[in-house]
Nucleic acid binder design. Structure first.
Lengths: 258, 258
DNA sequence: TATCATTATATACCTTAATACATAACGCTA
DNA sequence: TAGCGTTATGTATTAAGGTATATAATGATA
């Protein structure tokens, strides 16, 4: 059993952007005319023209710009607004696909039930959510130690309950998100040690923002990758912007999401 | 602009369960016959019969049981398997609706973009995910202190970055999830204090599971509500099952999801 | 001014899915 | 055995989309 689903954006209760029309718009973008696009899709010119007309009249801003007559008989181009819509639709569709994939994974056909263990349409407050690969799993009865490799090559360890690992169907090679609350990331001078340990990550302080009690420190750790740490202001008196610093994270404080 | 989407379960690549058929099945469940159900929906008897026939032949187990002739001319009833499917579909649909709602919220029509800030089709490892209501928000430049009221009336405080609160569009009255890793929940005898504070929550130990280093403690806090805590085994030597205990949670360790 | 590829528009046709309607078959009941 | 309400099955009709096809209209160009 698989889960199938369409994604339609409506405007004033009427279908506005749907998969077929998106395909058509991409073809128009590529070929510069409705008639050529219709041939490629394929669909009848009339349907194509009507689709474009409906979209344009539903949209607050034109999506395509048509010219009749002229050098090559005219043509049709996608407006900037239209291009932004296409990009956005692609993002939405990707998120939607992800959702469906997870939904499919949780369906249990044998007994006609779906094991929805926890909510999984969830946006989480944590500032640090890093894409990572599970490269090793160490099980004990209660806990589970995950070795993670981030996109920039960095290695991290995460401790979660065994139960949690099973619910997420974690296995070596699985791509997950390492989720860390910013106050669980400790930022100190590179020369420091915390509990006898060197920092897991190094980087440059990009920005410090303080109020009386707390400070937010944004650290650039390279590869166009930023880490947000929140510390009490009196603990970071010896830190300045542009300084090279170390970041410490307790494996206990790394949540896993997928 | 709103996001619309259908939810269809397929079997062997053919539509199996779709909204219309689910409605029909519910009507059959209520009225005990295809013909009455068809009148109620409303749809033609033939379509209804065909829908039922297709579902039954696609399903690995019969979804409905039909009788022809007899006392009241026969009738149609939903099998246990069918009822389980209906319940499961409802769960899926709810999750799907949640997803669409969030997706709609993140669409920004003015400039034709969608602000997908973070991944939000995310299942998170944390064992404790509690439904809560935001009853107060206290902002500073960096941080944001949320007062949360759980379904069972319990009050909790959560500290997250201001940025995070803004990204989640948090406001008073908003329903969210308080997400807490089990090793951030400290379980001690009721008489104890941690950093001079009484426990936020009380409950009975339902189960303790230990390996050499760590123990998982499941605490029943009433209202059919369970909390999972993971502590080092040597710290809970004075705890037993059925004992009444206190639970301490650092507001820093409570993530917010929605 | 004739040519050209295109947009813009209309009409007839085809396909699909649903409805409407008709009719068997069934098995208990009076 | 006739009556009944239902399942089971077939056929004709309708409605909605799309296709196929034809025809203006357009405006640069040779």
């Amino acid at each position: 059993m698989t889960v199938a689903s369409t994604l339609t954006l409506e405007m004033l209760g009427k279908p506005f952007l749907l998969e077929k029309r998106i395909v058509l718009l991409h073809a128009i973008q590529e070929h510069g005319s409705i008639s050529k696009a219709a041939k490629v899709v394929p669909m009848s010119y009339k349907s194509a023209w009507e689709a474009v007309d409906i979209m344009n009249s539903l949209s607050p801003e034109p999506i395509v710009y048509t010219e009749t007559g002229g050098k090559d008989g005219g043509g049709t181009t996608i407006t900037d607004y239209g291009e932004r819509l296409l990009k956005s639709y692609a993002l939405l569709k990707e998120e939607h696909s992800r959702f469906l994939e997870r939904l499919s994974e949780l369906t249990d056909i044998d007994n006609g039930t779906f094991k929805t263990i926890e909510r999984f349409t969830l946006q989480v407050s944590a500032r640090n959510q890093w894409y990572a690969n599970v490269i090793h799993i160490d099980y004990s009865d209660v806990e589970c130690i995950l070795s993670l490799k981030l996109k920039n090559g960095l290695l991290l360890e995460s401790h979660i309950t065994r139960e949690a690992a099973e619910n997420l169907s974690l296995e070596v090679g699985r791509e997950v998100f390492a989720i860390i609350k910013s106050n669980a990331i400790h930022c100190r001078r590179l020369s420091c040690q915390i509990q006898g340990k060197d920092p897991q990550i190094e980087g440059f302080i990009e920005k410090i923002q303080s109020d009386k009690g707390l400070s937010k420190i944004v650290v650039d750790v390279g590869s166009n990758f930023r880490v947000v740490s929140v510390m009490s202001t009196d603990k970071i008196k010896d830190l300045n912007e542009d300084m090279r610093v170390g970041l410490w994270i307790d494996p206990q404080d790394i949540l896993i999401g997928r």
